[in-house]
Structures are given as structure tokens and as C-alpha cells.
Computed example of a mutant assay.
Amino acid sequence: MTLLELLQRIFGKDNDTSKTVAKERLRLVLVHDRSNVSPQVLESLKVDLIKVISNYMEIDESALEVSLSDEDQAVALVANIPVIKVKRTV
């Protein structure tokens, strides 16, 4: 969830209509198509990120989100990783 979405929910301007959800899904499909990254590759990347980050931090794996975003004619990998605590010793 982006900061804008959070603020919209807090102040009651949440417009999660079927149209909005469908547009977001279509946007995600187009981003995946443009980047040539299959859902399997994205899931594998998510698993690898969990393994690496777990060496340094305790994270909430069930809330971890990894996606691709199309911004300014470039594809960006976006990861939302809830950190429970930082491990002091590795």
C-alpha cells in the first residue's frame, strides 16, 4: 500500500471500485509483460529475498510484498518488507 492509498483510507477517500481494481490489475499485467518477468520468476525472487534478508532481520514473511512498477518509462522492483526486529549478531 502506498502512502497516498493509506492517506486516502484514513481520510475516507478510498475509491476501491471494481473499475479501479481492474485498472490496477491490467497495469500490473502490462508491467510484467514489458519486463518479461513471469510470475514464477517474481515468486522465486521473493523467496530469495526472504532468505537473504532473514540473515540480518526478523521479517513478517506473510506480509511481504514484491511487485514490479512501471514509472517514467522504466520498470522498478518494489519490495515492501515488514521488519519485526534487527538481528544484532550474524
Rank of each mutant, 00 (worst) to 15 (best):
N15G: 05
N15L: 14
D16A: 03
D16K: 10
T17I: 02
T17L: 09
S18P: 00
K19P: 00
T20R: 09
T20I: 05
T20D: 01
V21I: 12
V21A: 05
V21Q: 08
A22Q: 12
A22M: 14
K23Y: 06
K23A: 13
E24I: 06
R25I: 07
R25D: 10
L26T: 08
L26M: 07
L26E: 13
L26I: 00
L26V: 03
R27K: 14
R27L: 08
R27I: 02
R27F: 09
L28A: 05
L28S: 13
L28F: 08
V29N: 09
V29A: 10
V29F: 12
L30C: 00
L30I: 00
V31I: 04
V31W: 02
V31N: 00
V31E: 04
H32A: 11
H32Y: 06
D33I: 04
R34F: 05
S35Q: 08
N36E: 11
N36S: 11
V37N: 04
V37P: 03
V37A: 03
S38T: 11
P39I: 05
Q40K: 14
Q40H: 12
Q40N: 13
V41Q: 15
V41W: 06
V41G: 00
V41P: 01
L42H: 04
E43T: 09
S44P: 09
S44Y: 13
L45V: 07
L45M: 10
L45I: 06
V47C: 05
V47Q: 15
V47K: 15
D48A: 09
D48L: 07
L49F: 10
L49V: 02
I50M: 10
I50D: 02
I50S: 05
K51L: 07
K51R: 10
K51N: 10
V52S: 02
I53L: 07
I53G: 01
I53Y: 07
I53C: 03
S54N: 05
M57F: 15
M57D: 02
E58T: 06
E58S: 04
I59H: 07
I59K: 02
D60I: 04
D60P: 11
